[in-house]
């Protein structure tokens, strides 16, 4: 069984399997369908690199999308 890591997603504490990719993390989130963009510790994880970027213990993850705005 894989170790569990503690992370923060959009300001909320969460847990994840150690060394999962950012893409897997995002795929497993309960969120509305549609595109998102992801930051890991304040740095953009380009959508083309999510599958090759691992989530680490203590990571601060931001998952954002587009909303109405002026």
């Amino acid at each position: 069984m894989r170790d569990v890591i503690r992370i923060v997603i959009n300001g909320q504490p969460a847990t994840a399997e150690d060394n999962i990719s950012v893409q897997t993390l995002v795929d497993d989130l309960a969120r509305p369908k549609g595109p998102c963009a992801v930051e890991r510790n304040g740095q953009l994880v380009p959508w083309t690199e999510r599958s090759t970027t691992a989530v680490q213990d203590g990571d601060q993850i931001e998952v954002v999308t587009l909303v109405g705005g002026g």
């Binding site: 997603i9 959009n10 300001g11 909320q12 989130l29 309960a30 969120r31 509305p32 369908k33 549609g34 595109p35 998102c36 963009a37 931001e62 998952v63 954002v64 999308t65 587009l66 909303v67 109405g68 705005g69 002026g70």
Partner: peptide, 20 residues
């Protein structure tokens, strides 16, 4: 058209999105 970038709503949500 202009749009804003905001945190995703992380919940079970059947709601509709702007992009729809």
């Amino acid at each position: 058209v202009t749009v804003a970038v905001r945190r995703e709503r992380l919940m079970d949500d059947q709601g509709r999105s702007l992009l729809d």
